[in-house]
Amino acid sequence: MSDPDLSLHARSGLPEALRVLVEEIPRDAWQAHPDFGGLVAFWLERHLLFRRLLATLEADVQALIDGQIPFEVYAPRLSRLGGLLVNELHGHHQIEDQHYFPLLARFDPRIGAGFDLLDADHQALDGLLNDMATAANAALAGGAPGRLADHLDGFGRMLHRHLEDEEEIVVPVILKTGFGG
């Protein structure tokens, strides 16, 4: 992806050219769609898991900073939940990039560039995940938890942007084509 305005760090949503399917099948109509369930429900549940893990990590580090939980309680939670988030996101992105996206991109040529955008997002998120893991390891080694809080905040903004955009590309394709069934 060569347009810097479409990078994960710069964009505030999908460009109009990639919103064609979500305009045909808007988000508020997804659950009522006859092909909702199966793959769509699974996909959205995975995204909800990522959002919840991130929210827990953010709440936990703030609780540590505020002195509401001791480091001895915080450290194993960070290790377990942070590792879960990193590993699950990496696995999720690999499956999307290697299996689902190439198949889904064939169904509607109007949004083929959307899958390139999502692939570029995954590359950007990999770097952010590595930075977050470094900050988490530093916090676990007794470093300043504020640094991790800052990383989680920045990572969270990028993850939320990506998940929303991915949902608005992928879910309408699946619903329109019946791929999930």
Rank of each mutant, 00 (worst) to 15 (best):
A75P: 04
F115A: 12
P70E: 14
H93E: 11
A120P: 02
G112H: 10
G82V: 05
L125A: 03
S79R: 15
P109W: 12
R110E: 11
L117E: 03
G91I: 00
L118D: 06
D121A: 02
Y100N: 11
G67F: 04
G83P: 07
D108S: 05
L81M: 10
A105Q: 15
P102I: 08
A124V: 08
L118F: 07
Q98E: 09
I69R: 14
Q94T: 10
D116Y: 00
L117R: 04
Y100G: 05
A75M: 03
P109H: 15
D108R: 06
N87R: 09
A105H: 10
G114K: 07
A120Q: 10
G82R: 02
R80S: 07
H92N: 03
L85V: 06
E96D: 13
D121L: 00
F115V: 13
Q123Y: 07
H99I: 14
G114P: 10
L125R: 03
F101L: 02
Q94A: 12
A75H: 06
G82I: 03
P70L: 07
G83R: 10
R106Q: 14
V73D: 13
R80L: 06
Q94N: 08
G82E: 03
Y74H: 11
R106I: 02
E96R: 09
I95K: 03
H93P: 01
A120L: 01
F115K: 11
D116A: 07
D97M: 01
H99D: 15
R77G: 01
H90L: 12
A120S: 13
L85S: 03
V86G: 01
A124E: 08
L103P: 01
A124N: 00
G82Y: 05
Q68C: 05
Q98A: 11
P109E: 15
S79V: 13
Q94S: 11
A113E: 14
D97E: 11
L103C: 07
I69D: 02
P102E: 09
G67Q: 00
A105Y: 04
L81H: 09
E72T: 15
L84R: 14
R77D: 05
P76K: 07
G114C: 12
Q68G: 13
Y74D: 04
